[in-house]
Each structure stands twice: as structure tokens, then as C-alpha cells.
Design a protein around this nucleic acid. Structure first.
Length: 556
RNA sequence: UGGGGCAUGGUGCAACGGCAGCACACCAGCCUUUGGAGCUGUGGAUCUUGGUUCGAGUCCAGGUGCCCCAGCCA
């Protein structure tokens, strides 16, 4: 599926269509404004797709603009990572720009505002500025420096720029209204002094613009028509528009939507960073993380993620999407598109007593029942096989119809077998199951037409390859990890990673990093980046739906 | 208590004054060489109180609940 096939309708698309119809804008240009200070996660995808698709659907353009106004936090490393992740999603842009590309012009615009008496240099300390801002219910107080004349303001700003003053000693502020009910309008800061090296402009600048003074102006300079952002910027829209009106420049339209939240995970950069830095996960690409690199490593496809984003929709409601919808999307994609293989991840040995000692047969197995074009393969069968521990019960629970003493089941693509007896160790654990097979049932159907209730998967002990299987579960045990006293670190799921040694059929020997398969009756798996030909490593992407697990749960 | 925003099944999103619908989840059945997939079906929602209207989830008024804003972060 191509991203452009995803065409939902929503209030933003309606607004854009209206703007085109009534002539407010003649074409559509949107921008993607990531701050290069972290890796992209699934929450970003929603915003990215809104920006990308709305431009695309309207025959417009998307600009990828890195919001690099804070040199203390941003790094080039993230610029590359973000571009790579966005490309993986299939997003296309007409050009890459940086907020820092516009520092010179922006400075000139600030001077323009000073000349118009709309901005001033404030010498108050940060504490004083805060104290004089007022509160939610009380108005603020004017700064004693608010009425400085134009010449002095121009001179001071120039000297701030040249590095004559230490960090924090002065700021440039817009002159609006200290009594405004919207706190963002109480003479917001435009420039702060920061003697910092910038990843692109080096040491040229000693002052850096703040978001409110940079973003809208950059939008205007690039003639962005629709500046789409999350709900928390709704309070900033009056300021966004004020600057543009004072300047008398091209005025884009800002529209806000609810960002993506998901249960059983955390999305904030700060929290994700803690997970990494405190070693709760192995890194930014640990398959349990919600980052795009992690999801990719885990085996999620871009198509599945895009499908999820489409199904989640766009609205202004604060909402928390269900991670099970994401899982449903990836199952849906992988069901249609992944090759089936047999693997046993919790092995139990089965000896077929009446099968010839040194015989091997090659069984025909379907590669993907959802896509006959993928053909078949051969799977070796012999006297000793492994089956899943779950597929045998010495004393069967109600409704359990897999293997148990006296019961007959089908070995997928092989024979019917019937359990005769078991061998146990000192502790009474079943360590070996014995069975007999029906030679007349080769391929999986009995000559006399009798039926079995269950089909189980298997691998031939002598032919199987031992592999590592990493079973993942949700990183947190609580739907909302942020709530409660212990915080998100207090509800990390101790079983979010389980490393198993399993056996896979021989055809998997040549599997390469990134290859995806369905291990029949278990789930979808992806070859990990740490996999080597002599030691294959598979990650669980998502399990198959498990009807038996539900019955078991109901049974208690 | 100032300002801005949002309230529809369990979750997310539709319905633009005219039979409240879709997806995921849930439940039941059919089918099945994956207890997968597929197919069929059931149940379940308009925050509240008034008003306008032949008719209100939608319009109006009041109430309630939740989210955002007092960084020289974005």
C-alpha cells in the first residue's frame, strides 16, 4: 500500500479544501517541523502523515524543516536518523531546510519590529520576568525597560547578537500586553542570549530565537499555507498571528489536532531517554520501544504502521489509542504477506515408535495459504521430532484437543500420530512423549477418512536448526504507565523479554536480517540485526490470535 | 478562580437539522491440514438540564467533567 492511498477525511482536510475553494490559498504547502533532538516514535508518524498526505492529496508540497533553534539540545546525528525514518515510511519532501537557515532574515525582521515600537530589550533577570508575568488570574506588570527608545533597543540587540553580554542577562521581548488573559501574549520572549556552538551556524550567533518567534516566521518565509500542529499550540495561535500581522508578511494558517497517545507505552522523549540511559531497555532500537527504529527491528512494516495511523483518524479529542489496534494492523499485513514456516520454541521430544529408525521423508508444505503464488517447500520428517510443550497435556483440560495419551492428532503436512505413553524425569516432569503413526495418513489425511480435531506443528530433531527466539511483550503492565505512585519505571513488565532456545525447520537456515515469517500457530517473527548464519536470532513481532488462551482463561 | 479547547458503545473515528454508522475489542455460530485466516450473526454509545424545531448527537442557554497555558523548551 502506498501512503497516498490513505485518504481519510477529517476537519483539517475540510478546512484546507475550503481555503482552496474560497481563494485564501491557491496551492497547498505544508511543513514537517521535527526538532533534531531525539529519535522518531510512533506518535510522530501521525503528525508526519497529516502533513505529508494533505500536501500530496492537494497536489502540493511538503518541506522538511528541522527546528534547530536550541543549540544546547540538538545534534546532527538526529537529523540523519529522522530523515532515514521518514523515508522508511515513504514520506517525500521537496526540500530540507533548517530554522537556522533563516537566522539572518529573522534578525532583520526583529529589527523591523523594534523600529515599529513592537519589541524591546529587557534587562530583567529570568526570575523578575517570571515574577512580573502575573498568574492565570492576575495580570502581569510592565517591565521597567519596556519604554526604552528605538535607538537603545537597536543598539542593545546588536550587542546581544555580538556576544557582549552573558547568558541570561537580557532578552528581546515583543511588546504586546502584560495584562492579556492569554499568558503567551504577555510580552513573550523572542531572543535569548546563548553562547553556544550550533550544529550548523557554528559560533556565528550568540542569540537564538525562541519557538514562537521562529516557527511562524519560518512558515511565512517558506510560504507554508497550512501549519499543522498539536493541540498544545492552540494557545499560541494568537501570538503566531500577531507577529505575522505586525510584520505584514505572508500569513499561513495554523490548525491544531490531537496528538497520538497509545496505552501500555510512554511517548515523551524524557521518559524514553530514561529507559535507555538507565538500561531498562538495550537502546533506542530495543524492540520493545515505541521508536520507529525499534518497531522496524521488531518486524513491523511501514504499511502496517500507516494503516494504524489511518484507522486512528484525526480529531481534536484528547484520546489514547489501543495498542491492540496496531497489533491487529501488523497481523493483517503479515498474514497476507509472510511466508509460513515451522518452528518449535518450547520443545518437547516425541518419539514415533513404529516409524523406521533411519528413514527421512520430505513433506510438501504450503508457503502461504493466503498467496498460492508463493508455492511449496519440502520439510524433512523422521522418527524423532519436537513439538510445542503447549501441544501436549498428560491430563487434558476440558476442551483441550491437542495431544494427550490415547488421542490422535495431525502433524501438519505429515502424519496422524496417536500418543501411547510418556517418560518422566525424577521430578515427574514429562520429558519424552511416545506415539505411533498411521502410515496411511501421509500428507495429513487418513485413508479411511477419519478426522482429528487438532493439527500441530513440529520439526524433525535430526534436521532442525537451533536458534535464539526473543519473545516480546508490552513494556509496561499498566495501560497508563504514567499514573500511580511508582511512576512508569515502577510498572515495567518483567516478562517483556524472554529469550528462548528453539528449533526451526532447515529451510530457515538462509534467513537474513529483516526477513519476516509466520511461525505456524505461534506468531510473526523477524530476523534480528544481531542474527548470524551460525546463530540465528528471531524477534517476535506479534503473536497470532490465540483462541485456546481465551478458553484456558475462562476455565480459570 | 483568567484564557483556550474537548465531551458519541470498552477503545478510536464518522454522522455537516432527517432511521446513530465503521474499525479494533467482545460474544455466538459456520468453515478450516494454523484453536490462525475467512464468513455470518448478536449485544452494547450521543456528559447533564432546559429551550428552538414537525424532527436535535448536530442549533441556543445554563450546568458538569476532562485537557492545555504562568520556560530565556518545542
Amino acid at each position: 500500500m502506498n501512503p497516498e492511498e490513505i485518504k481519510p477525511t477529517d476537519f483539517i482536510r475540510e478546512a484546507v479544501a475550503e481555503d482552496l475553494k474560497n481563494g485564501r490559498f491557491k496551492a497547498v504547502r505544508t511543513r514537517l517541523p521535527p526538532e533534531p533532538n531525539g529519535y522518531l516514535h510512533i506518535g510522530h508518524v501521525k503528525a508526519f502523515m497529516i502533513d505529508y498526505l494533505i500536501a500530496k492529496e492537494n497536489g502540493g508540497e511538503l518541506v522538511l524543516r528541522f527546528d534547530d533553534t536550541n543549540p544546547t539540545k540538538e545534534e546532527t546525528e538526529f537529523v540523519e536518523a529522522i530523515e532515514e525514518d521518514a523515508r522508511w515510511l515513504g514520506i517525500e519532501w521537496v526540500k530540507v531546510t533548517y530554522a537556522s537557515d533563516y537566522f539572518d532574515l529573522l534578525y532583520a525582521w526583529a529589527q523591523k519590529l523594534i523600529m515599529a515600537g513592537k519589541a524591546y530589550v529587557d534587562d530583567q533577570t529570568a526570575e523578575q520576568v517570571t515574577a512580573n508575568r502575573g498568574t492565570l488570574t492576575e495580570p502581569g506588570k510592565n517591565s521597567p525597560f519596556r519604554e526604552r527608545d528605538v535607538e537603545e533597543n537597536m543598539d542593545l540587540l546588536e550587542r546581544m547578537k555580538n556576544g557582549e553580554f552573558p547568558n541570561g542577562s537580557r532578552i528581546l521581548r515583543a511588546k504586546i500586553d502584560m495584562a492579556h488573559p492569554n499568558i503567551n501574549m504577555r510580552d513573550p520572549a523572542m531572543y535569548r542570549i546563548l553562547h553556544e556552538h550550533h550544529h550548523r551556524t557554528g559560533d556565528k550567533w550568540k542569540i537564538y530565537p525562541l519557538y514562537d518567534w521562529s516557527h511562524g516566521q519560518n512558515d511565512s518565509m517558506e510560504e507554508i499555507t497550512h501549519s499543522l500542529c498539536s493541540l498544545e499550540y492552540e494557545n499560541h495561535r494568537p501570538l503566531y498571528e500577531w507577529f505575522l500581522e505586525q510584520l505584514g508578511v505572508f500569513k499561513p494558517r495554523q490548525i491544531e489536532f490531537a496528538r497520538l497517545n497509545m496505552n501500555y507505552t510512554v511517548m515523551s522523549k524524557r521518559k524514553l531517554r530514561r529507559l535507555v540511559e538507565e538500561n531498562h531497555v538495550s537502546g533506542w532500537d530495543d524492540p520493545r520501544m515505541p521508536t520507529l527504529r525499534a518497531l522496524r527491528r521488531r518486524g513491523f512494516t511501514a504499511e502496517a504502521i500507516l494503516d494504524f495511523i489511518r484507522k486512528v483518524g484525526v480529531a481534536k479529542n484528547y484520546s489514547i489509542s489501543d495498542v491492540s489496534l496496531l497489533e491487529a494492523c501488523v497481523r493483517d499485513d503479515l498474514n497476507k504477506n509472510s511466508l509460513r514456516r515451522m518452528a518449535v520454541i518450547r520443545p518437547l521430544k516425541v518419539v514415533i515408535d513404529n516409524y523406521p529408525e533411519n528413514q527421512t521423508e520430505e513433506m510438501d508444505a504450503v508457503n502461504n495459504p493466503e498467496d498460492v503464488n508463493t508455492g511449496t517447500r519440502k520439510v524433512p520428517f523422521s522418527k524423532v521430532i519436537y513439538i510445542e510443550q503447549d501441544d501436549f497435556q498428560e491430563v487434558p483440560q476440558p476442551k483441550y484437543y491437542r495431544l494427550f495419551p490415547g488421542n490422535e492428532v495431525r502433524l501438519r503436512y505429515a502424519y496422524f500420530i496417536k500418543c501411547t505413553h510418556v517418560l518422566k524425569d525424577d521430578k515427574g516432569e514429562v520429558i519424552e512423549v511416545h506415539a505411533t503413526y498411521d502410515p496411511e495418513s501421509k500428507g495429513g489425511n487418513a485413508a479411511d477418512g477419519r478426522k482429528v480435531k487438532s493439527t500441530i506443528h513440529w520439526v524433525s530433531a535430526n534436521h532442525a536448526q537451533e536458534v535464539e527466539v526473543r519473545m516480546y511483550d508490552r513494556l509496561f503492565t499498566k495501560e497508563n504507565p504514567e499514573e500511580g505512585d511508582e511512576g512508569f519505571l515502577g510498572c515495567i513488565n518483567p516478562k517483556s523479554l524472554e529469550i528462548l532456545k528453539g528449533f526451526v525447520e532447515p529451510s530457515l537456515a538462509s534467513a537474513k536480517t529483516g526477513d519476516r515469517f509466520q511461525f505456524e500457530r505461534l506468531g510473526y517473527f523477524c530476523v534480528d540485526i544481531e542474527s548470524k548464519p551460525e546463530k540465528l536470532v528471531f524477534n517476535l513481532t506479534v503473536n497470532l490470535k490465540d483462541a485456546w488462551a481465551k478458553i484456558e482463561k475462562k476455565n480459570g
